[in-house]
Amino acid sequence: MMLDAAGWTALRLSLLVGVTATLVALPLAIWIAWLLARREFWGKSALNALVHLPLVLPPVVTGYLLLIGFGRNGPAGRFLEETFGLVFAFRWTGAALAAGIMGFPLMVRAIRLAIEAVDPKIEDAARTLGAPGWAVFGSITLPLILPGVLAGAVMGFAKAIGEFGATITFVANIPGETQTLPSAIYALLQVPGGEDAAIKLVIWACIIALGAVALSEWLARRVARRIAGA
């Protein structure tokens, strides 16, 4: 299953994009999921819809909206470049942004379900014992939702790795910079004689996806055992 240099580059980049997207999106996803599960506020339905938008919009539309917003001339893109020197357009960071946004709804859904499964009465009990809100979350809620967080992270990671439409629209298909695994497969299939190299990448994509699912199952079982206290 040896890949050529271009294949390795695409694989490494995909992992980098997937891991970055997951790690950056996860804390935000936990926060949003907690808001949606535990808080009532004005605009909650709108927030919920916004979070789910990437799931229902055509990925090309999401990619194009990112291009408008986070491109060099986009308002968010210009602000981030001027303030933090952070450039998304046609960089791997842009691929990570697109991947993170596409995986975000999946993360939020899984984590929200996990939070809703935690009995708020347990959290109330912790508050009466003197724990402030953030400590209750960190010591009670978070440990109890860990399996859900892991499941959400793996879903988000798998989505990030496989993301194609929004990525190619937003940051194009530049080998070594924005050409992730799906983009590389797509590119190989566009040239005559590229199938052999493409099939190797396809197999690697399958290995990563299955490995991620197996890892999350294993982690979730361990965590569930620890939490149930058997």
């Binding site: 009990a125 009466t128 014992l129 109890l144 620890r226 206290g229």
Partner: peptide, 20 residues
């Protein structure tokens, strides 16, 4: 706020932390 009232609350359903 709840956490500064210092009331010890014993609930009907114990409400022990299951992961501890």
């Amino acid at each position: 706020p709840v956490h500064r009232r210092r009331v010890g609350y014993v609930f009907q359903d114990a409400r022990l932390f299951p992961h501890m």
